[in-house]
Design a protein around this nucleic acid. Sequence first.
DNA 1: CACTTCTAGTTCATCGATGTCAACGGACCG
DNA 2: CGGTCCGTTGACATCGATGAACTAGAAGTG
Lengths: 346, 346
Amino acid sequence: MSTMHDVAQRAGVSPKTVSRVVNGEPGVSERTRQKVDAAIAELDFRPNTVARNLRTGRTGLVGLALPHLSQPFYAELAEAIMREAERHDLTVLTELTGGVAEAELALVSEHGPYLAGLLMYPVGLSDEQARSVARAVPTVFMSERAYEAPVDRVAMANREGVRAMVGHMASLGYTRIAALGADHTGRPERAAAHLRLDGYRDGLSDAGLPYLPELVLEVGTPDWDRQHGAEATRGLIERGVPFDAVVAFADALALGALHAVQEADLAIPDQVAVAGFDDLDDARYACPSLTSVAPGTAQIAREALALLNDRMALTAPQNTGRLVVADFDLMARESTLGGVAAWGTA
Amino acid sequence: MSTMHDVAQRAGVSPKTVSRVVNGEPGVSERTRQKVDAAIAELDFRPNTVARNLRTGRTGLVGLALPHLSQPFYAELAEAIMREAERHDLTVLTELTGGVAEAELALVSEHGPYLAGLLMYPVGLSDEQARSVARAVPTVFMSERAYEAPVDRVAMANREGVRAMVGHMASLGYTRIAALGADHTGRPERAAAHLRLDGYRDGLSDAGLPYLPELVLEVGTPDWDRQHGAEATRGLIERGVPFDAVVAFADALALGALHAVQEADLAIPDQVAVAGFDDLDDARYACPSLTSVAPGTAQIAREALALLNDRMALTAPQNTGRLVVADFDLMARESTLGGVAAWGTA
DNA sequence: CACTTCTAGTTCATCGATGTCAACGGACCG
DNA sequence: CGGTCCGTTGACATCGATGAACTAGAAGTG
């Protein structure tokens, strides 16, 4: 590994001049610039990032904190963010928190000091903890929950998305539309469930349909997975409650519902229509393919990095948090439209 | 941020002594150690990682290079590796290569200098390129392809896994077992396909079944996804070739096959049994749940980090690469066994 | 021509921690 | 009692790059 000093000697100039050339600073004549460039090429010199970081105090490292990667939603989000970070010349350091406040905080105390910024999908953090995280390092949350803290946040169009989905179903003639994934604990970390339930009510009222509590299915755990989606749907069927559609608050739940409905020999979408939220790859490939709300993952990644950039540059307001809500798309597929749409297409 | 200097002043000692305490070096009396510890606590001092890295030349950063995260197999692998890295006190820097040699190399030239090690799932690299990567930074490949280079590698039990799967099917009485995912291009980057096909032949010959070329399905692209799995299976059905089982070389292909088989109104597993490879979460949740070869992802992560540790410590032999093959498990589920095994269980 | 004004480039200190080596004080020994 | 040795501790240089302050010479100005 050659250093700037080596390059300087070879080019017959001072190290500082080499530094100027490398960083494209002004005050270097064309002639010397060329000499230095030549020396750099000959020695295959690459500036030592660590030393630079120490001197400048900047690292170009941003932390990405997610609960898991094994759930496709997070994996897809991670991928989008990494691709976007690359465009900003930032290096991503990924940490899995398991959705536990402890781990979410540990990340900050352990890596915080040398992180230029932090993108976090917080789950367990309290308002107070969120504040302390944001105080320690420039932070952007990707989260449906609003925090009582001056933190930037990117969210999905939870309410509007579900509202539109209910509208979609109503316009197809479905009238007894179940909601799958409600939460009645009121706990703030379940904000996504609350907002989506609000959207469900909005959609019903838009369509002039009554809100029927027996069609609102709670899911026992905070984990929205197929297992629980199937169980809740089975329960609905067994109770004999009449219904002709299910709007699930997550694709995983919807895929479970799909399973339970087919298990009961009900035709999709003729007897029961099903829809989800997240637009996972799995939704496209499900059988039948699943209608879903695409939450604009790419846009979320873009906005999150834009906000973070501002904050790292201290361009952003210091005492207030900004909120960006991503646009959604309603991806209508076989599970509501029926037909023989080619499998695996958008 | 307080520095060692601050702590030293507060404790009335020299910075070097603080350094000794922090790093648990010997040669510090109990009395001073306590004074220093107290000062550290009072100032909430945390050593500056960047400065330490510069001085020592070590970083504790390992790169993780994967083609994608959006394919569940890679996401699950990434998760396993991150969890394991944490146990080794290593920080993981993830990069997505898209499976392109260019990106795989760029990672090294860009971040290589300050990476303590590299875990890569290589796809596009040539032997020569693999060599140059391994020369630049301590490297462990996770890859089915063997490289003509002194690089450590962790692989799956490709051949044995498929062999066992074919045995499993034969023991259940299936005799016309199709292979899905073969490759006849012979290109080295498709080694997984070649090995698995070998395993298929082994399995047939173990069971005394003939190898029938018309039952070997090639998949057009290197991408093993559901779409292609479904297409190839449809082709088989349309050609009217009799078959009673499909062993797919990847779960994604198997899920596609599942779809195509059901589409043709063939009962699973009564008329056609289906099995995959990878044991994705999706396999457990498929309908019917999918029998699959679990490649031992957790073990792969463990072994990969163990090998990398050796190599970073220079404990490993320098001119030769080691190979570890992970154990596999045959997860038999409804798609071969039938029955009503609880959905979503192991 | 003396004097300011640039420009191109240099010197030196510095970021924070750590390796090297020397110094200091007490214990122990002959 | 002088000398050696050992356990502690500190002074200083160093890792590689960069910011601040400075200089030598060219160019412009009245």
